[in-house]
Design a protein around this nucleic acid. Sequence first.
DNA 1: GTGAAAGCGCTAACAA
DNA 2: TTGTTAGCGCTTTCAC
Lengths: 325, 325
Amino acid sequence: MSTIYEVATLAGVSPATVSRVFNGHPVSPEKVSSVRAAAAQLHFTPNRSAKRLRTQSSELIALLIPDIENPFFTALARGVEDRAQEAGFSIVLCNTDDEPEKETRYLDIANSEDMAGVILAPAAEDGDISHLTDRGRPVVAVDRNTGLDIDSVMVDNRAAGTWATTALLDAGHRRIACIAGPLDLEDTEERGLGWRTTMRRRGEPGFESLLRHADYRVEGGRAAMNELLALREPPDAVVTTNNLMGVGALQALAAAGITPPEFGVAVVGELPFSTLPPEAITEVRLPARHLGITAASLLLDRIAGDTQPARTVVLRAELARRAAR
Amino acid sequence: MSTIYEVATLAGVSPATVSRVFNGHPVSPEKVSSVRAAAAQLHFTPNRSAKRLRTQSSELIALLIPDIENPFFTALARGVEDRAQEAGFSIVLCNTDDEPEKETRYLDIANSEDMAGVILAPAAEDGDISHLTDRGRPVVAVDRNTGLDIDSVMVDNRAAGTWATTALLDAGHRRIACIAGPLDLEDTEERGLGWRTTMRRRGEPGFESLLRHADYRVEGGRAAMNELLALREPPDAVVTTNNLMGVGALQALAAAGITPPEFGVAVVGELPFSTLPPEAITEVRLPARHLGITAASLLLDRIAGDTQPARTVVLRAELARRAAR
DNA sequence: GTGAAAGCGCTAACAA
DNA sequence: TTGTTAGCGCTTTCAC
């Protein structure tokens, strides 16, 4: 690796001038071109560690997500990446597995790497981000709330749960079960609440016994669905509060020889890579990519120096039958 | 952020001693504890940029994949991450979108960030990695071959294509189509070659007209399947050379009211999040996670100083009906 | 517009 | 075992 000094020597200028050329500071045209020529000849790439050490900042954004194998989060990541890219930032994707320790480790790394900011889909428990915020590094929460006073981008989870349930009621289903996520996650509570409120308002008796909690993963959804099917009075429809549990529920139904829409299925989220025929399933689509874009925009504002009070943006879900694709 | 100097002052030792404590070099027990106490009190975290600038190396591995939304690659990423984590390395995931420019940019970043090494699922065209290898930074290719003399981890693509085709023949299908990937990717050629060789050996007439090329994405698979279905003499089965095109093909079949296994479908790769009943589809499972683990292992060997000639590891695919899950 | 020089925080000789 | 010191490659005053 060549350094700024070698380029300077070759170009017949001082190191400072080379630096200026690479950072867009005013330099006379002749020197610019001789520096560029020298740099090209030496395959010079500025050393980012040195630059960061000196400037205490970088064009790197950390994105912490709980499950890289969940298409919802990869779509979100795409959104973040697209927006960040436009602004000249690169994103570093970190998979926390919903483990607070991993989350903490990555937050530490973001801090000690002098990253420009962090977008965080928080693990179940609230992490400590004070070492970042103390240094003026912005953090934006996405998809899940933190107890912290920071910008956040959420989905209207209550409405999503309500729509899913209402769609099944409208289709004539009555005993509508709900497979919800872990008890300690607020967004899950909200989606489950949408179901509960709707069912209560509808006055369906005994619906409370049709609630199950699982872990947001395929296996959890399948197990919960199997439990529900084994009930003395099984449901005739189910709402799942995320995409993967929807997949699990459908797998359980398929194994039991039950086919939607005979048995009603509504999923909060989009069924990933589904090969089911159109119109069989109700999806309440979450704007995953848009969540990412919005979070990135908020973060970029902060990086640019915006100091207004913390904002919360709530995006709407979109009710959709599975369309032919 | 506190520095090593402040910790040293508070602990009553020299900066070098603080550094030694944090890097596991021999220091007397009393000093170790006073340094640790001081560090804790100041919330000291070593500055990674400074460390990297000094040592010219880091515990960061870049993983470049062409499509973060393809579950095959996220599974691969999990494998890399798990193995790297064990060894104390963090991975930085970069999405190249199969665009050579993005790949180049990320390779440059990996270089100028002094990353310990790179695992690369190469975009279609061969990138230039000489600036990395010149500095002794190891690069390992995974899933796709490069023309370069570096370690690589591949799947036995030819066999995978052959198995998929044979399974359909064994199930009684005769006019077996093939939806293959882009023409310029070697692994695709290999998988397609497995199909072609098998069909030729079997002596089925006119099978060459049942070959289509698509872009490895869902939409491409769907379009190709629709084309095949519109043929005067449509096929009675199809092999797709990756997972997403398999999804697309199944979507097209579902839309046309055709159901496997009446129409034979064999997929090279695993159908992600499938809710189809067991036994309907043939999958030739690719060891995605294992590819990642192996690539990470090879890379870690190199990082540790291994200088043997470039190795190529070929992993076997696994023939499977969709099992009940 | 340009150069000289200091210093970001850390580690690794070298000395003691 | 410990401290002193130089320097990794860059940016940024401060002079000119």
